[in-house]
């Protein structure tokens, strides 16, 4: 049992995590003919809470309840993994990434998320505005405009051989590269890093 716990609390390698994520695709298809996709849940929340008569949100969201339960499950899974199966050691980050992030003002490399950015004290500051408000907005707006996110397009779409999903995934990456290499540093300076 101890050995098992030791093994399970280690960070899982990509060749365990990737196939497990991939298996979600047939699991959802087989248990209920559902297409793997997560960003749709944001749309269902809009439809359920703030439809405001907008045609895009006027549909029977109750029939998409499975998707809301699926994401609730992800939240609970996050809680279980962190509470009972947490890695006792600090996260290992590539040296060069650490060096580059230090150079733009990140000082905390102990947690899964840098405490310099992700804490409540930053909420009403320029840092919070950039990383929580602007960042979240881009994720919500972009995924819906694209009709899916990493799960719906990159994983479900590409694995069912749909080229529009490959196009979407390529543009996810282009956006991410541009933000990381060009826009992020000046933005971080601007918000006080």
């Amino acid at each position: 049992m101890n050995q098992f716990m030791e093994w399970i609390t280690q960070p899982w390698p990509w060749y365990v995590a990737g196939p497990m994520i991939g298996l979600t695709v047939p699991a959802l298809l087989i248990v209920g003919n559902k297409s793997f996709g997560i960003s749709s849940s944001l749309r269902h929340v809009c439809a359920a809470c703030i439809p405001a008569g907008i045609p895009f949100f006027t549909y029977n969201w109750k029939k998409e309840m499975w998707n809301l339960l699926f994401v609730l499950g992800i939240l609970i899974g996050g809680f279980i993994a962190t509470s009972f199966l947490a890695n006792p050691n600090e996260i290992v980050i590539a040296e060069q990434t650490q060096a580059e992030l230090s150079a733009i003002g990140i000082t905390d490399f102990s947690g899964l998320l840098p405490a310099d950015i992700f804490n409540w004290e930053n909420l009403f500051t320029a840092k919070g505005l950039l990383f929580f408000v602007v960042g979240g907005f881009l994720v919500g707006f972009g995924t819906r405009y694209a009709g899916g996110c990493t799960s719906g397009h990159a994983i479900m779409g590409i694995s069912s051989l749909q080229w529009p999903s490959l196009v979407a995934t390529i543009f996810f990456m282009i956006g991410g590269f541009l933000m990381t290499h060009v826009i992020m540093e000046p933005l971080m300076k601007l918000v006080g890093f």
Binding site: Y145, I170, G175
Partner: peptide, 25 residues
């Protein structure tokens, strides 16, 4: 939209799935 999401992905470090898991964590 894909491009816009990519910008947000790099900033937040999360696509929609991990967002839920981060809150739970």
């Amino acid at each position: 939209g894909g491009f816009i999401f990519g910008l947000g992905w790099a900033l937040t470090g999360a696509c929609p799935g991990p967002l839920f898991a981060q809150i739970g964590s």
